[in-house]
Design a protein around this nucleic acid. Structure first.
Lengths: 336, 336
DNA sequence: TTGAAAGCGCTAACAA
DNA sequence: TTGTTAGCGCTTTCAA
């Protein structure tokens, strides 16, 4: 049986309160008392019971991270950064996967399973603007991504439109005019896909290049396999193109694989650019030009905002909308 | 303020025990009572307080997953599978990263931060056989990996030696005789690196091929970057080789990148095989021949074993050592 | 500076 | 079938 505050108090010949004070590092304790208590703690191998502490204090020291799936490299690297940052605040992270499914995303927000977290970092992929109401919960939520804007919570996101525009402009600057897009979503006006497509269109328009819908291929989840399938469809459709904008890196890498299967050279025949700057992008052949959307900054900002909310202890504070900076990283898959 | 059992009981005009019974799905309740209680629960939006439940019952419904880092695709995919399997048991997963650092691995085992987990799935990379004693803790631990054998806990691992031997044999069968190894660790007799190297040596010996230490390159963490660096060193050393065994996929992919930079053709000049079968392996150009070490089976077995231990409620049971099956998956990076 | 005691919300033993 | 009650281990007033 694990030792409790009582056991320590008895052994040290002090009251339970004094032990608690020592454990929690309060200052006003006579040094010899502290020493005696500490000795008893070490002796008994006392470890505080976090459930009891949490019940009493209303805080568990656990935050939740809700994301589509860890098998998507972007989210794995995001989770890595979130957990690392949380650790610097003394917080641990409970990770939930939703499979990008709207129902599961909504369910997790009111799930008793998540009730022992003090707050949530929430990255939906299935919910849409019309679901913003579900974010009204009685614990702090930091929203990530671009499925919902102007919701009731803090929000950390990237400059999708500007970044996608910059990516497209890099291709245009290289003289490419027939730029295919892999990964668009149908009937969306919000979400990463829609926003990045918007950036693409803005860049075309600014350059005086016509938008050709035949160059845009649609898919659902942004896996490598879907990038490969989309590229096959584009090639079979016979529509000509001299560049590809993968709306994320996994799509771009899947597409690149198919281009090379078909004997097309990158970047001379077809230039390729991605989005996310996942680690593997730089080890491909050719290495993938991409956009660093500020993933680490997003993760760290999200944790920091959540910690601030937690410190508020439920008091109201204006919601914040944070946009992190991006970077276009030129590698071998684009000319120049 | 969130509703409690008391509030629900008052509203429904029953005792707190009855509400508890309804919440926990006990059977012996009159239907109309149940209905009345359920109505009050819905009405008040009652959600059980998990800290209180956990304090009282001694179980939190949370398991811990301790791994080196989520940025390594192997561990991201492992975590994905662990979380998914845990969900089928109604458990949530707290993820901790150790950075493959021995001190941090040891620390996490006795960390109060992990005290609210019911048990741990523990995948060390820094600890060694001599640290087995640290695994003697008063909660269930399922050990993963091959750093410690014969320890006090259940253990789920892969057939490293046999799988590495099979991988090497595939290269030998293709007529390769100068097989370089990327990712070996110095002065190790245990651990994935040592075991896979052992499998490599066994295959060579069985085929009557001499072991040439000059073909073995050493590194630390199994990142793509280290695979690339090792391959550069091998090429600069001038030692001739016609095949490469990357001790994991990330290393193999990093190596493959450098081979192609240098204008070597895969597999005609140099065949490449990896280990792990991470998702991206099949989208490389050429796609990577590799070993599927049974990652999903490991994850699911680990969760199931932990759930069994949890059900035991601390009663003794013989420790188990589980070896999952592997598969060699031939793709384009090897001939034939 | 330290102690006594209440109570966080729940489960489970026991009673009715 | 339902109610009463003790107490899990801790933090936190309030008092000494």
């Amino acid at each position: 049986m694990a030792a409790t505050l009582h056991d320590v108090a008895k052994q040290a010949g002090v009251s339970i309160k004094t032990v608690s004070n020592v454990v929690n590092g309060y200052t006003n304790i006579r040094p010899e008392t502290r020493a005696r208590v500490q000795e008893a703690i070490d002796d008994l191998g006392y470890q505080p019971n976090l459930s009891a502490r949490s019940l009493r204090s209303g805080k568990s020291g656990v935050i939740g991270l809700v994301l589509p799936e860890l098998s998507l490299s972007y989210f794995a690297e995001l989770a890595d950064a979130v957990i690392a940052r949380a650790a610097t605040h003394g917080l641990v992270v409970l990770v939930e996967q939703t499979g990008a499914d709207r129902e599961r995303e909504i369910a997790v927000l009111s799930s008793p399973r998540m009730r022992l977290t003090d707050g949530l970092i929430f990255s939906p992929l299935g919910m849409g603007q019309e679901d913003a109401g579900f974010l009204e919960v009685d614990y702090p939520v930091i929203l990530l991504g671009e499925r919902i804007f102007g919701g009731p919570t803090d929000h950390v996101t990237m400059r999708n439109v500007e970044a996608a525009r910059a990516a497209t402009e890099l291709l245009l600057a290289a003289g490419r005019r027939r730029i295919a897009v892999v990964g668009a979503h149908r009937d969306e006006t919000l979400g990463s896909a829609a926003l990045r497509l918007e950036g693409y269109r803005q860049a075309l328009e600014a350059a005086g290049v016509d938008y050709d819908p035949a160059l845009v291929s649609f898919t659902t989840l942004w896996h490598r396999a879907n990038g490969a399938a989309s590229m096959r469809a584009l090639l079979e459709s016979g529509v000509g193109f001299d560049a590809v904008f993968g709306l994320n890196d996994a799509l771009a890498l899947g597409a690149m694989r198919v281009l090379q299967e078909k004997g097309l050279r990158i970047p001379s025949d077809v230039a390729v650019i991605g989005f996310d700057d996942i680690d593997e992008a730089q080890y491909m052949v050719p290495s993938l030009t991409t956009v660093d959307p500020g993933r680490t900054a997003i993760a760290e900002t999200a944790v920091d905002l959540l910690v601030e909310r937690l410190a508020l202890g439920g008091r109201e504070a204006p919601r914040r909308e944070i946009l992190v900076d991006f970077d276009v990283i030129a590698r071998e898959s684009t000319p120049g």
